[in-house]
């Protein structure tokens, strides 16, 4: 045993460090429930901003929902928006300060219910912002009510017998709608449930920020996420439930990757 401890102490040296949280991730203990996807995504945003060296330029817009306090966790500038209005606030910030890197961060209740108008019109105008969309198919913050994205048959506190299409309509694939809009330069759907998925999601977030540099339209990243408290499952069970039930309806991968966006020729906005 003593020999094992000695060995561990030898390994734990600064020159052997392969991963530590980004210095942009504040030391505050996050208020999220254990296992919540919001924490993983916010860690990735901090890493991307650090790696791109854009800490001073970045402005995030937080929603209403569990991620309302995201501004406490990443050491950049933030603006809180009213429920659903993050894309409108991000539009104003980016238009007034085009040199800034502006992103909105929203849950599905915020982005796809009360904020549907702001979401669709911001993308349709091709606002040069990054929009991050955390789809956990439920209203997490308010106690697990049905969201527009809730799956058919999914039990929530307002659909105790499961979502019934005759009464509640169909789960809204808002990311698929967004991909149809000419203002969208890059639209992708990712998840953060395994290490490989986390690495892909980070690449997608990085790409979205790079696209903002090209000034060629909206970059939209959906993360299919878990809400173990709302779903009433453990975090590990939630990941399994998400794979089995969410992924068939919300398949992962790029929905749109405008080639012209890469060349920067798609639409150059005058400053």
């Amino acid at each position: 045993m003593a020999c094992v401890i000695e060995k561990i102490n030898e390994i734990i040296a600064p020159e052997n460090l392969v991963y530590a949280k980004s210095p942009l991730t504040n030391d505050d203990i996050m208020h999220y429930c254990p296992g919540c996807s919001h924490g993983v995504v916010q860690r990735l945003i901090a890493e991307v901003i650090e790696e791109m060296g854009i800490q001073e330029q970045s402005i995030g817009v937080t929603p209403v929902g569990c991620s309302v306090f995201a501004y406490k966790y990443i050491d950049i500038d933030w603006q809180e928006a009213a429920h659903g209005r993050a894309p409108a606030v991000a539009t104003a910030i980016k238009r007034l300060m085009p040199e800034k890197m502006v992103f909105s961060y929203q849950g599905d209740g915020d982005l796809a219910a009360i904020g549907t108008a702001e979401t669709l019109h911001a993308v349709n105008r091709g606002e040069n912002i990054v929009m991050l969309f955390i789809n956990n198919a439920i209203y997490g913050m308010t106690g697990g009510q049905m969201a527009p994205t809730t799956l058919v048959g999914q039990v929530t506190s307002t659909t105790p017998f499961g979502r019934n299409v005759d009464i509640n309509g169909y789960p809204l694939k808002i990311t698929d709608l967004i991909a149809q809009l000419p203002g969208a330069a890059y639209v992708t759907r990712q998840s953060v449930h395994t290490a490989a998925a986390v690495r892909r999601a980070k690449k997608a977030i990085r790409k979205a920020f790079e696209i903002q540099r090209l000034n060629c339209g909206t970059a939209f990243v959906e993360i299919v996420a878990t809400c173990s408290s709302g779903w009433k499952l453990s975090p590990v069970e939630s990941n399994k439930w998400m794979e089995e039930n969410m992924f068939p309806h919300y398949p992962l991968g790029d929905l749109k990757d405008s080639k012209r966006a890469d060349s920067g020729l798609y639409r150059i906005k005058s400053k």
């Binding site: 996050m30 919540c36 924490g39």
Partner: peptide, 20 residues
Amino acid sequence: NGCANCSAVCPDSCISVYRL
């Protein structure tokens, strides 16, 4: 083996990984 899979999925950024 220091693969850093654990730190990748951690929502609370609690894990640092070292590899020799």
